[in-house]
Amino acid sequence: MQVNDMLAVGLNHYLFLSAIIFSIGILTVLLRKNLIVILMGIELMLNAVNLSFIAFSHFSNNANGPVIVFFVMTLAAAEAGVGLALMVTIFKRFKVVDISIFEKLKN
């Protein structure tokens, strides 16, 4: 009985997982130095939000969630495209992809 209760996965399990992934994404953005890894942290956060959208839509029988996830995915792809183009430009200019480049923008 105890095991069965544990194995009945509900909405709050998914939300909890989504919160954990989101915080890991935030930490990646806040802590890492490499700009591309920071971009990946943003992707991680978007994915966590997607997961909670899908979970909400699954547990309230509502088809709006997947549609919004669809939009988020498209935007994430666009964001990654522009972000990576910027990274390539930065790399060509400064030879590093590091947030320390912002210190060189002072003058």
């Binding site: 009945a8 996965v9 509900g10 909405l11 709050n12 939300l15 909890f16 989504s18 919160a19 954990i20 989101f22 915080s23 890991i24 935030i26 930490l27 806040l30 699954h58 547990f59 309230s60 029988n61």
Partner: peptide, 25 residues
Amino acid sequence: AGFFAFTIGATAFMSTEMISGSAKV
């Protein structure tokens, strides 16, 4: 970040209305 995860997680676990087994799943 830990506080953030804890807050959302605690909220998710406190709210028992929409767990599985409800008719809407």
